[in-house]
């Protein structure tokens, strides 16, 4: 069952279309990734969904609530974690969490016990007594996420949850997102880290220039660019010199030199391994590994957006460092 339905969503600023006819739906309890380069329309889309921007056209229905017509009702079931810390520097961690809970109408006893529980879960119990301004980047991020889920939202919007934080904190946050999903929370996540998306998302949409250019589950997206089979052979010595001979013997295979002592065999059909191993055996070469290669989500991203994933991550990290 879908909890989110976005139809023909558009946002224009003068002549510029930041979001240009976006359609997607998100199932209950799903982790939905929204990936794209800077300026692709991710933030504009998320802002319209959470009620911080008004759509020029289109509809957003969350749990049966029309966000354009009943934005406050929709916000009551949302948890929102922006890409930058937006808590109060002067308040300590515990006070910040209690304040955020009070905005959702939680009573004193309820918000204090939930705040304590979250501080424990996020391993911030000690830090909970310190002012927010004294927190490290990873701690700040964790507290902002805790503030976003203190009222047990049905759908959580996470904007770049792991950008600019240490590996351990990022791992904790990924685990938490999966835990929330297991508890039935729907998660809408934007990220520049393709590995993060690949690890935790059930479905992903790629947005470029205000339009979704690919959407689906990870296997579906990979299938969309995978044509045929690829096997990488690795030996203890250089086997590149056999490439031309192999190409002649195994018609229908495309032989590519790979790094170090490897060759890649690509074909539209399944590749029988025994004749290949026998060929190298006759040449006195021991093949110690034959691995089937599958496209990664990064390959899909590069293919559909035309943008190198590494460049995308560097672009974001540069942005974060500059803040």
């Amino acid at each position: 069952m879908d909890i989110v339905n976005v139809t023909n969503l558009k946002k224009t600023y003068g002549d510029f279309a930041a979001v240009n006819g976006v359609d997607f739906s998100i199932g209950q309890g799903e982790i939905f990734g929204f990936l794209g380069p800077n300026g692709a329309g991710k933030t504009s889309t998320i802002n319209m969904m959470i009620g911080l921007a008004k759509p020029t056209e289109g509809t957003i229905i969350i749990k049966g609530i029309d966000v354009r017509k009943q934005v406050k009702k929709a916000q009551s079931i949302m948890g929102i974690v922006p890409d930058e810390s937006n808590l109060y520097d002067e308040l300590d961690g515990f006070e910040n969490l209690c304040f955020c809970a009070s905005l959702y109408g939680m009573r004193k006893e309820e918000r204090e016990s939930k705040a304590k529980q979250l501080l424990d879960e996020f391993r911030l119990t000690e830090a909970g007594k310190r002012p927010f301004k004294a927190y490290s980047k990873g701690m700040r991020r964790k507290l902002v996420i805790a503030a976003g889920i203190i009222h047990s939202p049905q759908i959580l919007f996470l904007d770049e949850p792991t950008t600019g934080i240490d590996i351990e904190s990022a791992r904790q946050i990924r685990e938490l997102i999966v835990e929330l999903k297991n508890q039935g929370t729907t998660v809408f996540i934007t990220t520049h880290y393709i590995e993060d998306a690949e690890r935790i998302c059930d479905r992903i949409a790629f947005i470029v220039s205000g339009k979704i250019i690919a959407i689906g589950s990870i296997p579906e997206l990979m299938e969309s660019i995978s044509h045929g089979y690829m096997i990488r052979l690795s030996a203890e010595e250089s086997i590149m010199k056999y490439a031309a001979d192999l190409q002649a013997r195994f018609e229908g295979c495309n032989i590519k030199a790979s790094q170090n002592n490897s060759l890649v065999l690509a074909s539209q059909n399944r590749i029988p391994l025994l004749p290949v191993i026998q060929y190298f055996d006759e040449k006195g070469v021991s093949i110690y590994e034959a691995r089937q290669l599958s496209p990664t989500l990064e390959d899909v991203f590069v293919k559909v957006t035309g943008i190198e994933a590494e460049k995308l991550e560097k672009e974001k990290e540069k942005g974060v460092a500059g803040k």
Binding site: I50, G51, L52, K72, K73, Q75, S76, M78, I80, P82, E84, S85, N86, L87, Y88, D89, C100, L103, Y104, G105, A147
Partner: peptide, 14 residues
């Protein structure tokens, strides 16, 4: 400027 005001705008209060 510190974006904490956004939190108030996003809260389910009128």
């Amino acid at each position: 400027k510190g974006r904490s005001f956004e939190r108030l705008l996003l809260a389910p209060i009128s």
